[in-house]
């Protein structure tokens, strides 16, 4: 069988693979999070304190957006969506959720971040605005459950960032290039790695967690109704954090990804390139092209879906 080479060409830092970074961590006797922090400081001239402080500010905004939609419903700028985080929050409060406290908490926070985003609230794009709920939900839900310190959560965000940086380097983080797997998939990989660290797993386990999370979102298309970051994005954030925590839990049990993380990243890019244009953030296929999706288009833009 002929293989198609979809490796990214120019301007790629050829050595910036997770396997190489982990070797560097071993050589230097530092964790992945510390390594990424040190690399950031070396490259940008920030001091360690500045970079830690900046990440801590990110965590502040994450916390606000993860709670913003729970007590009161928030509605999107377009009017298409809203209130799901609040609804689910009430359901958890009544003790009806079957998910267990950590996952249920993560799901409600992922919904909240995404709804706050759609309502023109303040969020951290992580790695993108469309996938902004996944990493905060995992870090905050696991962190609360395990009683992690704020410093540990900030450190976990550096671990997560390392995972995202490798994906961005050798694949893509844009739905328009790679479909939703590049946004929610990448975010889930980042979230899984962070969760493993907060649960007490080591970096190798964190990377296996990341690989397993990304593997299970491969092929996910980007088909937003009306081209807006709402349907299906909001609920994909909720389900992607479930994938991330499932992968993290398996990784902490010692389960390994048979396909190494770096190769999963390469596969994600190849799959993204093979996706048709209609399924890469154009709003012209998939759920956007359903009967209901087209009706919503008519309602929002006052013209026929076919006219776009």
């Amino acid at each position: 069988m002929e293989s198609t080479n979809y490796e990214k060409g120019e301007n790629v830092m050829a050595e910036f693979w997770m396997s190489e970074i982990l070797k560097g961590c071993v050589e230097k006797g530092m964790s992945l999070g510390e390594y990424i922090l040190a690399s950031e400081c070396e490259n940008t001239g920030q001091t360690r304190e500045q970079a830690l402080d900046r990440m801590s500010q990110m965590l502040d905004v994450m916390e606000q957006s993860a709670r913003g939609g729970l007590e009161n419903p928030v509605f999107s700028n377009s009017g298409l969506t809203g209130g799901c985080a609040h609804q689910y929050h009430g359901y958890i409060q009544k003790g009806q959720s079957i998910l267990g406290p950590v996952l249920a908490d993560a799901v409600q926070m992922a919904l909240s971040c995404s709804e706050v985003n759609a309502a023109m609230g303040k969020i951290v794009a992580c790695p993108t605005a469309g996938s902004c709920g996944i990493v905060p939900a995992a870090v905050l839900a696991v962190g609360k459950y395990r009683g992690n310190s704020r410093e540990e959560m900030v450190q976990a965000l550096f671990t997560a960032s390392g995972v995202g940086m490798v994906i961005g380097e050798h694949a893509t983080l844009a739905g328009a290039d790679g479909g939703c797997q590049a946004e929610c998939g990448a975010a889930a990989a980042m979230a899984a790695a962070a969760a493993v660290r907060l649960l007490g797993g080591d970096d190798e386990q964190a990377v296996h967690g990341a690989a397993m999370a990304l593997k299970n979102l491969l092929g996910l298309v980007c088909d937003p109704v009306c081209g807006l970051v709402e349907i299906p994005c909001i609920k994909r954030n909720a389900v992607s954090v479930s994938v991330a925590l499932t992968a993290a839990d398996m990784a902490c049990a010692g389960v390994r990804s048979y396909i190494p993380f770096d190769e999963v990243v390469t596969a994600m890019y190849a799959i993204g390139k093979a996706l048709p244009q209609q399924l890469r953030e154009t709003g012209q296929g998939g759920l956007a092209a359903t009967k209901t999706g087209m009706e919503m288009y008519q309602r929002i833009y006052g013209q026929d879906y076919g006219a776009m």
């Binding site: 050595e15 910036f16 922090l37 990440m55 794009a125 997560a160 960032s161």
Partner: peptide, 16 residues
């Protein structure tokens, strides 16, 4: 240290 094309705060960020 190995570095990529992205900064940490391109990935965890920006706030918007």
């Amino acid at each position: 240290y190995l570095a990529g094309s992205y900064s940490v705060f391109d990935i965890a960020g920006p706030v918007m």
